[in-house]
């Protein structure tokens, strides 16, 4: 049985149980875990991303697919214990200091993981220096910042300015998002990108982190 298209299909249907079961069967059938991940799970999420972008499906369907992706990943994780799960790159992300809105940021985390990124989620109310310290420590290529309040947006600028001061802007790119934020604001503070939603964040970060 060719498990790959079946896994992708079940994931697109948001059928978590079927995805977990098919991934187990594929592994039992000695299919390489990397292939199951890339051609089954990530490929399925890519289709979901395209359909969402084209308004063929809506947020609940995307999130059901993302949950199925996680179920499949849980089965695969033990197979990658030695070398870790192959990723497209590492992203440090959080809602900035003073702000505790995190639904939007959580959606970005879900979509990034679904697309194959390793995400370090710092949560909410994150001080500017913590973004940088963790990004340096974890060798992340991108810092993602979210803000829902005009009063907390300046924290994003602090992070960008600190990176510049430390000469890290070539190594660590920045992306911002959130209701009061715009591409103009990103340009104004010197951030590398602005994302208007979670799917767009994935696209932008793929451009910021060169494909290996």
């Amino acid at each position: 049985m060719d498990f790959v298209p079946e896994i992708s299909k079940a994931l697109q249907a948001g059928n978590s149980e079927a995805v977990a079961s098919l991934v187990k069967q594929a592994i039992d059938d000695e299919m390489p875990p990397g292939e199951v991940l890339d051609k089954g799970l990530i490929a399925g999420m890519n289709v979901i991303g395209d359909k969402y972008k084209n308004h063929e499906i809506f947020l609940p369907e995307v999130l059901l697919a993302a949950k199925a992706m996680y179920e499949g990943m849980d089965v695969l994780k033990p197979m990658f214990l030695k070398d870790g799960i192959p990723t497209l790159g590492r992203v440090v992300i959080g809602t900035v200091r003073g702000d505790i809105h995190d639904i939007g940021k959580n959606l970005v985390v879900i979509m990034l993981r679904g697309a194959g990124f390793d995400v370090v989620d710092l949560g909410k109310d994150v001080p500017p220096k913590k973004f940088i310290d963790v990004a340096v420590e974890k060798k992340a290529g991108v810092i993602g910042m979210s803000a829902l309040l005009t009063t907390t947006m300046p924290v994003m600028k602090e992070v960008v300015e600190y990176l510049r001061k430390e000469g890290l802007t070539n190594k660590i790119k920045t992306i911002i998002g959130g209701a009061p934020v715009s591409s103009d604001y990103a340009r104004h503070i010197g951030a590398d990108a602005y994302a208007y939603d979670s799917m767009n964040a994935v696209e932008c970060i793929k451009k910021l982190i060169p494909v290996k």
Partner: peptide
């Protein structure tokens, strides 16, 4: 409750 749903990966329900 919203946070809890996200933690247990009930993403669509948490978001809704």
């Amino acid at each position: 409750q919203i946070n809890e749903l996200f933690e247990v990966k009930e993403l669509a329900l948490g978001s809704m």
